[in-house]
Lab assay of single mutants.
Amino acid sequence: KVILLEDVKGLGKKGDVVEVKDGYARNFLIPQGLAVEATKGNLKEL
């Protein structure tokens, strides 16, 4: 699961917690600054 930092077409809006494949999160969303891993600490910051 990841928390979206920006609106991502076809996935969700900023602040949404979405389930995506590990590779998509690690190789695209997180490096592009579009999402962060949905850890307990990150979820509390919402």
Results as ranks from 00 to 15, higher is better:
Lys1Cys: 09
Lys1Pro: 07
Lys1Ile: 10
Val2Phe: 15
Val2Glu: 00
Val2Ala: 02
Val2Gly: 01
Val2Trp: 15
Val2Cys: 09
Val2His: 04
Val2Lys: 01
Val2Leu: 09
Val2Ser: 01
Val2Tyr: 15
Ile3His: 04
Ile3Gln: 07
Ile3Leu: 12
Ile3Ala: 03
Ile3Asn: 02
Leu4Val: 01
Leu4Pro: 00
Leu4Ala: 00
Leu4Met: 04
Leu4Cys: 01
Leu5Asn: 03
Leu5Glu: 02
Leu5His: 02
Leu5Trp: 03
Leu5Thr: 08
Glu6Val: 13
Glu6Leu: 14
Glu6Asp: 10
Glu6Pro: 00
Glu6Tyr: 15
Glu6Gly: 10
Glu6Met: 15
Glu6Asn: 12
Glu6Ala: 12
Asp7His: 10
Asp7Met: 08
Asp7Leu: 06
Asp7Pro: 08
Asp7Thr: 11
Val8Gln: 03
Val8Glu: 01
Val8Ile: 11
Val8Arg: 04
Val8His: 04
Val8Trp: 04
Lys9Met: 12
Lys9Glu: 11
Lys9Ala: 13
Lys9Trp: 14
Lys9Cys: 09
Lys9Arg: 13
Lys9Pro: 14
Gly10Met: 09
Gly10Cys: 12
Leu11Trp: 09
Leu11Cys: 05
Leu11Asn: 00
Leu11Val: 10
Leu11Met: 06
Gly12Phe: 01
Gly12Lys: 00
Gly12Asp: 00
Lys13Met: 10
Lys13Ser: 09
Lys13Ala: 11
Lys13Trp: 13
Lys13Ile: 10
Lys13Asn: 09
Lys13Pro: 02
Lys13His: 11
Lys14Ser: 07
Lys14Met: 07
Lys14Asp: 02
Lys14Tyr: 04
Lys14Ile: 07
Lys14Arg: 13
Lys14Cys: 08
Lys14Asn: 03
Lys14Phe: 04
Lys14Glu: 04
Gly15Glu: 02
Gly15Cys: 08
Gly15Pro: 00
Gly15Gln: 03
Gly15Tyr: 11
Asp16Phe: 08
Asp16Ser: 10
Asp16Glu: 10
Asp16Trp: 13
Asp16Met: 11
Asp16Lys: 05
Val17Tyr: 07
Val17Lys: 06
Val17Ser: 05
Val17Pro: 02
Val17Leu: 08
Val17Phe: 06
Val17Arg: 05
Val18Arg: 05
Val18Gln: 02
Val18Ser: 01
Val18Pro: 01
Val18Cys: 06
Val18Gly: 00
Val18Ile: 11
Val18Ala: 04
Glu19Gln: 10
Glu19Trp: 15
Glu19Arg: 12
Glu19Ile: 12
Glu19His: 11
Glu19Leu: 13
Glu19Asn: 09
Glu19Lys: 10
Val20Asp: 07
Val20Gln: 01
Val20Thr: 07
Val20Pro: 03
Val20His: 01
Val20Lys: 00
Val20Tyr: 02
Val20Trp: 01
Lys21Gln: 13
Lys21Pro: 14
Lys21Val: 14
Lys21Asn: 13
Lys21Glu: 13
Lys21Thr: 13
Lys21Ala: 14
Lys21Ser: 14
Lys21Ile: 12
Asp22Gln: 12
Asp22Pro: 10
Asp22Tyr: 15
Asp22Phe: 14
Gly23Ser: 12
Gly23Tyr: 14
Gly23Leu: 11
Gly23Asn: 13
Gly23Met: 13
Gly23Arg: 11
Tyr24Asp: 04
Tyr24Leu: 06
Tyr24Ser: 03
Tyr24Ile: 07
Ala25Arg: 03
Ala25Lys: 06
Ala25Val: 06
Ala25Ser: 07
Ala25Met: 13
Ala25Ile: 06
Ala25Thr: 04
Arg26Lys: 08
Arg26Met: 09
Arg26Trp: 13
Arg26Gly: 05
Arg26Phe: 10
Arg26Cys: 04
Arg26Pro: 03
Arg26Thr: 08
Arg26Val: 06
Asn27Ala: 12
Asn27Ser: 12
Asn27Arg: 14
Asn27Gly: 12
Asn27Leu: 14
Asn27Pro: 01
Asn27Thr: 12
Asn27Val: 09
Phe28Ala: 03
Phe28Trp: 11
Phe28Thr: 05
Phe28Asp: 03
Leu29Val: 01
Leu29Phe: 02
Leu29Asn: 00
Leu29Cys: 03
Leu29Ile: 02
Leu29Met: 03
Leu29Ala: 01
Leu29Gly: 01
Leu29Arg: 00
Ile30Ser: 02
Ile30Arg: 02
Ile30Gln: 02
Ile30Glu: 02
Ile30Phe: 11
Ile30Trp: 03
Ile30Thr: 02
Pro31Ser: 15
Pro31Asn: 14
Pro31Tyr: 15
Pro31Trp: 15
Pro31Phe: 13
Pro31Cys: 13
Pro31Thr: 14
Pro31Arg: 15
Gln32Ser: 11
Gln32Leu: 12
Gln32Asn: 12
Gly33Gln: 09
Gly33Asn: 09
Gly33Met: 09
Gly33Thr: 03
Gly33Ile: 03
Gly33Pro: 00
Gly33Lys: 09
Gly33Leu: 09
Leu34Ala: 04
Leu34Tyr: 10
Leu34Asn: 02
Leu34Trp: 09
Leu34Cys: 06
Leu34Arg: 05
Leu34Gln: 05
Ala35Cys: 04
Ala35Met: 01
Ala35Tyr: 02
Ala35Phe: 01
Ala35Val: 04
Ala35Gln: 01
Ala35His: 01
Val36Trp: 05
Val36Phe: 05
Val36Met: 10
Val36His: 04
Val36Leu: 11
Glu37Ser: 08
Glu37Lys: 09
Glu37Pro: 10
Glu37Trp: 15
Glu37Arg: 11
Ala38Glu: 08
Ala38Trp: 13
Ala38His: 09
Ala38Arg: 03
Ala38Asn: 06
Thr39Gln: 07
Thr39Asp: 11
Thr39Ala: 06
Thr39Asn: 11
Thr39Trp: 05
Thr39Leu: 07
Thr39Gly: 08
Thr39Glu: 08
Lys40Val: 15
Lys40Ile: 15
Lys40Glu: 15
Lys40Trp: 15
Lys40Asp: 15
Gly41Cys: 13
Gly41Glu: 15
Gly41Asn: 13
Gly41Ile: 09
Gly41Thr: 14
Gly41Ser: 13
Gly41Val: 12
Gly41Arg: 11
Asn42Lys: 06
Asn42Trp: 03
Asn42Val: 06
Asn42Ile: 05
Leu43Thr: 06
Leu43Glu: 12
Leu43Asp: 13
Leu43Tyr: 06
Leu43Gln: 04
Lys44Phe: 07
Lys44Asp: 15
Lys44Met: 13
Lys44Thr: 11
Lys44Val: 13
Lys44Cys: 11
Lys44Ile: 13
Lys44Gln: 14
Lys44Leu: 15
Glu45Trp: 08
Glu45Asn: 13
Leu46Met: 10
Leu46Trp: 04
Leu46Asp: 14
Leu46Gln: 15
Leu46Gly: 14
Leu46Pro: 15
Leu46Tyr: 09
Leu46Cys: 13
